[in-house]
Simulated scan of single mutants.
Amino acid sequence: MRVTLRSRLLWLPPPGVVGGTALLMWFTGRWGEWGRVELPGLAYLAMPVLAVGLSVMVAAAIQMMAARTTLLPFHPEQASRLLTTGVFRWSRNPIYLGDFLLLLAWLVWLGNLLNLLWLAAFVIYMTRVQIAAEERALAGKFGKPYLDYCTRVRRWL
């Protein structure tokens, strides 16, 4: 197997990427007043975003477990079924969409617009590294049905 920059970047599992991004967002929020937004009740807006993010993630995980297919992002080739219904009808990556929503809720809670940069970096990394690797594996495993699914359903939402 050829070692590429992309494969080197895959060493950290997605929950670690989310945690690292959240930590960077927290440090950015503590860094200074630049980018800070102070609105009454702003933190409470984070709660529905958090609830939706968790709901999407849990729904996807339950659907994957019910289908007896892998949840492991490092081994998409172990997927036993191509899921195209439920939350997978709206997003090819509902767990990563949930991760995004969790980070968005954190951004709102922290109230610092500079964290939009970390949120964008998360989306770029996940799309170009993690999701790209998974899509290659799934296309190789499921072929045309997966490629047809990709034309019908957006990657994020």
Rank of each mutant, 00 (worst) to 15 (best):
L82K: 05
R2K: 14
D99M: 08
A46G: 15
W34D: 00
L23A: 13
Y146T: 03
P14K: 04
D99F: 13
A121D: 07
V58D: 05
A133H: 04
A79E: 10
D148I: 10
I62H: 14
W26K: 03
I124S: 10
Y146E: 06
W26F: 09
N93V: 00
P40Y: 15
E77H: 13
F122G: 02
A60W: 02
L147P: 01
L5H: 04
W34G: 00
L39Q: 12
W109R: 02
G20L: 13
A139F: 05
A137T: 04
A137W: 05
L82Q: 08
P15K: 06
L71A: 12
G35L: 04
R155I: 02
M64W: 07
W34Y: 08
V3Y: 03
V37E: 11
V52P: 03
L9G: 08
R6V: 14
L103W: 01
W26P: 00
E33S: 10
A137P: 08
C150P: 05
S80V: 13
G20V: 04
M126Y: 06
P145R: 10
F122L: 05
P14C: 04
I124W: 14
P40I: 14
L5R: 11
L39S: 11
R154V: 09
L119C: 11
W118H: 14
W109V: 02
R89T: 10
P48I: 10
I95V: 14
E33A: 06
A120T: 12
L138M: 10
N112W: 08
T85G: 13
V18A: 10
P76D: 11
I124C: 13
L83E: 10
L71V: 14
V108W: 03
F88C: 12
F100I: 01
A67L: 10
P13W: 07
V37C: 10
R81Q: 15
M25C: 04
A133Y: 01
A133M: 00
P73T: 10
L113T: 12
V123T: 11
V58N: 09
Y125A: 00
L110Y: 06
L24C: 14
A61S: 14
K141E: 05
N112V: 03
L5G: 09
W118M: 07
N112A: 02
M47I: 12
P94M: 05
I95S: 03
W31A: 15
L138F: 05
T4H: 08
P13Q: 07
A79L: 06
D148Q: 15
L71P: 09
G20M: 02
T85I: 11
L71N: 12
M57P: 02
M47N: 07
L113P: 05
T21Q: 03
I95L: 11
L82R: 07
G143S: 06
I124H: 07
V17I: 15
R8Y: 08
Y146L: 03
L157C: 03
D148H: 11
Y125I: 00
F27P: 00
P94D: 07
A121K: 05
G111C: 09
E33K: 00
L5F: 14
D148K: 13
G35W: 03
A59V: 08
K141Q: 09
L54C: 13
T127K: 01
I124Q: 11
G19T: 03
L24V: 06
G98R: 04
L107A: 03
L102G: 01
A105F: 02
Y149W: 09
Y44H: 13
L157N: 02
L23C: 06
A61W: 09
L101D: 03
E135P: 01
K141V: 07
M64Q: 15
